[in-house]
């Protein structure tokens, strides 16, 4: 890839301080994202996967500067946005939008659909009321809703339709980057497929770039060109979606993929399930050395002491493991 990245994260770190200094434990630091570097190229879809507490959502919010980052640098379209203030970010917000998991919670229940979708247009662009109305009509059509629905309220829609409204809002300003945080996990399987298809269509039509955050591996594989697997705040493996699923290099990726229950009974016999022991450790007190070592079936003394860094292997694959499975 010779083109310049659309968004680049260099050693992005995000810590939260929680607790109360007057309680027994006092203040504690949550290491949500730990020195993550990632380049998002124009036109691609990067999937961020991992289990709860791996920092995928936090990373997504850092990328769009919904959170201030604790350390590292962020570049969007070549511009350093690490320390831009809210006001300075405003023109850039048009170019990067977020879609959230819960379409029920992210739409104001007391406002009509037309106003919900028109809001970003009114805030950022100087359009006449007729222009706004035409644009809203057009946007509803793009996301597969009837323009007759303009005057309804969010509660009159099903979950899938609400997510369409959320997407219409996000693409209203013709952004180049959309960060979608678990956009289909609250939806039923049959509706989930509709939204996945819609996102793919929009990508083609509007030449969008996605960062797609989800815990559902099969959905992530379907939508992503590249995938970053996260564990306890760091990327443990990065590579093209097809490669990673066909030949995982990191033991965690391998276990994660093998743990997904699949409805395909024909292949059930061939698959080898790896059941990890224990739970994901707390990001308040991450393990020393490789953060995966307490659950890793191949861990050695080296893994307990030395933390592996994300290193490039053959092709486009990078792995943070001392003993990658596919050398």
């Amino acid at each position: 890839m010779t083109a310049a990245p659309l968004l680049e994260a260099r050693n992005v770190t995000k810590q939260f301080v929680i607790g109360n200094r007057f309680t027994a434990q006092g203040l504690r630091t949550v290491h949500a994202v730990d020195a993550v570097s990632l380049k998002i190229m124009p036109g691609e879809t990067v999937g961020l996967v991992g289990e709860s507490g791996c920092g995928k959502s936090t990373l997504g919010r850092c990328m769009t500067r919904l959170y201030d980052i604790t350390g590292g640098e962020l570049y969007f379209e070549g511009v350093d946005i690490t320390t831009k203030t809210l006001r300075q970010m405003r023109p850039l917000r048009q170019r990067m939008q977020m879609v959230f998991q819960d379409p029920y919670a992210s739409l104001n229940p007391r406002r009509r659909i037309r106003d919900l979708i028109a809001e970003p247009l009114r805030v950022h662009l100087r359009l006449s009321e007729t222009e706004v109305r035409d644009r809203v009509r057009q946007l509803l059509d793009v996301v597969g809703l009837s323009p007759d629905h303009m005057d309804r309220f969010p509660h009159e829609f099903s979950g899938g339709q609400r997510q369409r409204i959320g997407i219409a809002r996000a693409i209203a300003l013709e952004p180049s980057l959309i960060v979608a945080d678990e956009p289909v996990s609250a939806l039923d399987v049959s509706v989930q497929a509709q939204i996945v298809n819609l996102l793919a269509d929009l990508q083609e039509r509007l030449s969008l770039t996605y960062v797609f955050i989800a815990h559902d591996l099969s959905v992530v594989r379907q939508v992503s060109t590249r995938i970053a697997v996260m564990y306890l705040g760091s990327i443990v493996e990065l590579g093209s979606a097809n490669d990673i699923f066909a030949k995982p290099s990191h033991p965690y990726t391998q276990a994660l993929i093998s743990a997904v229950p699949q409805p395909d009974l024909k292949k059930a016999g061939e698959r080898k399930r790896i059941v990890l022991t224990g739970d994901v450790p707390s990001p308040i007190n991450p393990p020393q050395g490789c953060r995966f070592h307490p659950r890793c079936p191949f861990a050695t003394d080296k893994c307990r002491e030395e933390r592996p860094v994300l290193t490039e292997m053959a092709g486009t694959r990078s792995v943070a493991c001392h003993y990658p499975l596919t050398a």
């Binding site: 049959s190 497929a193 979606a241």
Partner: peptide, 25 residues
């Protein structure tokens, strides 16, 4: 059938589009 078809596969060739069920329950 449609429910089974709408699940994205974890192995093999990726379909260009998922088969989805139109509308909602």
């Amino acid at each position: 059938k449609a429910l089974l078809d709408s699940i994205p596969p974890l192995e093999g060739e990726k379909p260009r589009r998922l088969k989805s069920i139109p509308g909602s329950p």
